[in-house]
């Protein structure tokens, strides 16, 4: 059975269809990538899948739950977590506290217990702190355990968002361009991190322009163009799909299997040009 099912999903902004009549399913345990030129509607789709935008049409089902129209926190409570293309770090807090906020759903306490800081509360708080520190080490942020969020470099902030999302203990994690703005070394480390996420049993949705990363880690790929599905399927297939190649290059290129790397690179270049 699929983990997430989307049926006829659409989102309009005035006259613009950011997402249009989109249906797909995400099987559990996979890395499901979404690619497409800038403005294709990838971020809008993630916003729909986390309740940040309310769909104009269609349905979103997580396992048996129909989440359509629910607020973002309801999506989070059903196990969907995400990172943002435009960072949404809590800059007024320390890095560790950012991750601790991610633990909110599992730490939540009554107002009285918070105001009076009952011993139970104090204990839970210490445990939360340790767990958050653990997650920071997990994503490679051990150097920033006592940093303020607003004193961290960009690459570290992107990992911080991943740690915060992980702290919610998600079933499904949506990453919006995690490699954008990273240097090549940092980007390479992402492959490994995404791999470890799936080992943890987290299903990953990856929106990314870095084709090396996408081709390296994806099981399935969804190609978006002007909010619509251009192609979808196992990574292997999509990579060789003439429609995809055509859309990216503007002209037909004969598809031979030995192309792989080359096409991936050309696609990446084309995507860059679309920006």
């Amino acid at each position: 059975m699929s983990l997430l099912r989307v049926e006829g999903l659409g989102k309009k902004f005035g006259g613009v269809n950011a997402v249009e009549d989109l249906s797909f399913e995400i099987p559990p345990g996979e890395v499901y990538s979404i690619i497409g030129p800038n403005g294709a509607g990838k971020t809008s789709l993630l916003n729909l899948l986390t309740g940040v935008y309310k769909p104009s049409s269609g349905r979103i089902m997580l396992q048996e739950h129909d989440l359509t129209g629910h607020p973002p926190y309801a999506y989070a409570r059903q196990g969907i977590a995400r990172t943002f293309q435009n960072l949404q770090v809590f800059f007024n807090m320390s890095a560790l506290e950012n991750v601790m906020v991610g633990r909110y759903m599992h730490e939540r306490c009554g107002l009285m217990s918070a105001l009076l800081r009952l011993p139970r509360q104090a204990r839970a708080d210490r445990a939360c702190r340790e767990e958050a520190a653990e997650l920071m080490r997990y994503v490679g942020l051990q150097a920033y355990l006592s940093s303020a969020a607003d004193a961290m470099p960009y690459g570290a902030l992107k990992r911080l968002e991943i740690a915060r999302a992980l702290a919610t203990r998600p079933k499904l994690m949506l990453l919006d361009e995690p490699a954008a703005g990273l240097n090549p070394t940092e980007a390479l480390e992402l492959d490994d991190l995404i791999g470890r996420l799936t080992e943890r049993g987290v299903t990953v949705v990856l929106v990314e322009h870095n084709m090396r990363l996408v081709m390296g880690v994806s099981d399935h790929i969804l190609v978006l163009d002007y909010g619509r599905k251009l192609a979808e399927g196992p990574a292997q297939e999509v990579r060789n799909n003439p429609k995809v190649i055509e859309a990216y290059l503007g002209s037909a290129v004969s598809s031979e299997t030995s192309y792989r790397e080359e096409i991936a690179q050309v696609v990446a270049v084309a995507v860059e040009m679309h920006r």
Binding site: F90, M105, R108
Partner: peptide
């Protein structure tokens, strides 16, 4: 210093950031 207080500080900085980790 409680989860509630952290939620308050979080939504101050980014409301959607707070909501997507489950904060109403």
């Amino acid at each position: 210093e409680s989860p509630t207080g952290r939620a308050l500080r979080a939504l101050h900085s980014s409301e959607v950031g707070a909501e997507v980790v489950g904060i109403n």
